[in-house]
C-alpha cells in the first residue's frame, strides 16, 4: 500500500498525464481500495450483498472517473 502511494505521488512529480497515467492511478486506487475493503475492513467472507455494495462503489466511482478523463483527453 505504501509503495502504491509513493508510485502515485511519483506520477504527479514526473508530471505524467494522459490515458496511461490516469489508468495507472485508477488501477492503483482500485488495488488499494480492495485491500482496505478485504483486509482492513475484513469483509472477506461476509454476505455477498455487503461485498457487492462496497466493491460496487469502488468500481463505479473509478469507472466514471476514468470515463470522464478519457472523454476529455
Amino acid at each position: 500500500m505504501m509503495l502504491l502511494t509513493i508510485s502515485t505521488y511519483a506520477v504527479g512529480e514526473l508530471d505524467y498525464s494522459g490515458v496511461i497515467a490516469v489508468s495507472f492511478l485508477l488501477l492503483t486506487a482500485l488495488i488499494k481500495g480492495s485491500f482496505i475493503i478485504r483486509d482492513f475492513m475484513e469483509l472477506k467472507g461476509v454476505a455477498l450483498i455487503w461485498r457487492v455494495i462496497m466493491y460496487g462503489w469502488l468500481w463505479t466511482v473509478c469507472l466514471v472517473i476514468a470515463t470522464t478523463y478519457f472523454i476529455s483527453i
Binding site: 502515485t8 506520477v11 492511478l25 485508477l26
Partner: peptide, 11 residues
Amino acid sequence: IILFPLVYIMR
C-alpha cells in the same frame, strides 16, 4: 485513497 489521486495528481 480515491480523493488524493483524483484531486492532487490526475490530469
